[in-house]
Amino acid sequence: MSFSNIFGIAGSALNSQLVRMNASASNMANAGTTASSEAEAFKAKRAVFQTILSDQQKTDHATSVGGVKVLELAIDDTPNEKLYDPGNPNADQDGFVYSSNVNEVTEMVEMTASARSYQNNVEVVNTARQLMMRTIDITKA
């Protein structure tokens, strides 16, 4: 039945967009963090999507062929900014701290794009649901 597939496909997209939104929220929350070395400093994470092309690619949360799943959370490799702040408890011997590499503007755009995609998929579900209900009502014709 095609309509139940639509629900699964749109559902997988809603789930993936939520993961992307969560990653973005985590980045935003950690934007102001500092660390005493570049390795310890926070690095932005970004969700990478992949189409579920066959049954083999299904996972527990992504069960519809043709839907979408999160392949990985890629780490942004932009260098962390090194700031001179000797008063900071996180400062190294030379008085430097490493800030996160989160760009707030990028995260805001990411958040908005993700919310829009989420809305698109909600609309898909709504339309499919209405048509399904009308099809059930065909017996009353």
């Binding site: 639509i6 749109a10 995609s117 898909v124």
Partner: peptide
Amino acid sequence: AQRMELISKNIANADTPNF
């Protein structure tokens, strides 16, 4: 209904690289 399913796949994968 199958055409709608196909288009819903496109919408779901609007942010998937190489789709």
